[in-house]
Simulated scan of single mutants.
Amino acid sequence: MKKLPAVLTALVLAATLAGCSTGGGTPSAGDASASPAGAGAAPAEVNDVDTHFIAMMTPHHEQAVEMSEIILAVDGVTAPTRDLAQRILDGQAEEIETMLGWADAWAMGDLMEMHSVHVANGMLTSDQMGSLERLADTSTGDATAVAEAETTFLELMHAHHEGAIAMTEGEIQGGGHAGLRDLAQVMVDVQTAEMAEIDALLGR
């Protein structure tokens, strides 16, 4: 499986090099000055699909990070699940940083705030998050409870990934910003592989 940080680094570098070689290419995240409209404005190629995707996918990723933090705090979780959770945490935290860089450069503050309270595809309800937290909190020293918490995490993360992939397909097909479309494809590739990994861990 690809190491996500390296892929993201390559994407940002590619976008930066493209801007240098053409004199007006796609700016990297945070490079608002490369936009013809100036600082605080989105480049001309950015469309509503792009901005909606960032506004909805950012909180979706934030929840995946929170889920991973919950299970990583449980003593006794098996090494494969712990490794998966750490990779999800690290990879999606970096993707959040990248998306927030674009959101800041494109002056998306109001849109981000508006969508922060929405529940995107596959996101856990408050009851589901509460259930995972309770299982994690009560599992210390109890192998059966640890196993239940681990299974619950894997099942919920699988559904969470399914929702993310469904959201991401819209960006790949209709987004205007090449760098964001590339990042969306990375999300699909990585999370599809992680879902297969989860299936194997669950014995499906």
Score class of each variant (00 low, 15 high):
A149H: 12
E69S: 08
A85L: 07
M187A: 10
A41K: 14
A41W: 15
G170T: 09
E133S: 10
M57T: 11
L201A: 07
I172M: 07
A145R: 12
D48G: 01
G203A: 07
R82I: 01
I54M: 13
V146K: 01
G176P: 04
R82M: 04
Q128R: 14
T140M: 07
Q128T: 00
I165W: 12
A39W: 09
T192Y: 11
G109V: 02
M67P: 07
M57S: 09
H60I: 04
T151N: 12
N121T: 11
T51H: 10
G109C: 02
S68A: 13
D48R: 00
G170C: 03
G141R: 03
K3E: 04
P43Q: 11
G91K: 07
G130E: 09
A42Y: 03
P43A: 10
T58C: 02
H115Q: 10
E69M: 09
L111A: 11
M108W: 15
I54L: 15
G170I: 10
T16L: 02
V77W: 06
K3F: 08
P59S: 11
G38S: 06
L124V: 08
M67T: 01
G176L: 09
H52Q: 12
A73Q: 07
S139Y: 07
A200R: 14
V186A: 08
H158C: 02
L154Y: 12
G30T: 10
H118Y: 15
Q128W: 15
A73W: 14
T26C: 11
A39D: 07
V12E: 11
H161I: 00
E150P: 02
V7G: 00
S139D: 00
G163C: 06
I71P: 03
V146M: 03
H60F: 10
E169I: 01
T152G: 00
E62W: 14
S33N: 06
A93I: 02
E45A: 13
V186I: 08
D110C: 04
L183A: 05
V186W: 04
G203K: 03
T98Q: 09
Q63N: 06
E148G: 02
L8D: 03
L202M: 11
W106K: 00
V65G: 06
T152W: 07
H61R: 04
G76M: 05
S116A: 13
A64K: 04
T26S: 10
E155K: 05
E162W: 09
L154H: 09
T151A: 11
T144P: 01
G38M: 06
P5H: 01
T26H: 12
D137A: 14
V186S: 03
A44Y: 05
G130I: 00
G30R: 15
G76Q: 04
A73L: 02
I198A: 03
E113T: 15
M112Y: 00
D182I: 09
L8G: 08
M187F: 00
R82N: 03
M112G: 02
L4N: 08
E169M: 07
V190M: 04
I70Y: 00
A32S: 15
I172N: 03
V49D: 08
A79F: 09
H177G: 01
W102K: 13
A32C: 09
T9S: 02
S28V: 09
G179V: 01
P80L: 05
A105L: 12
L11Y: 13
L201Y: 15
L111Q: 11
L154R: 11
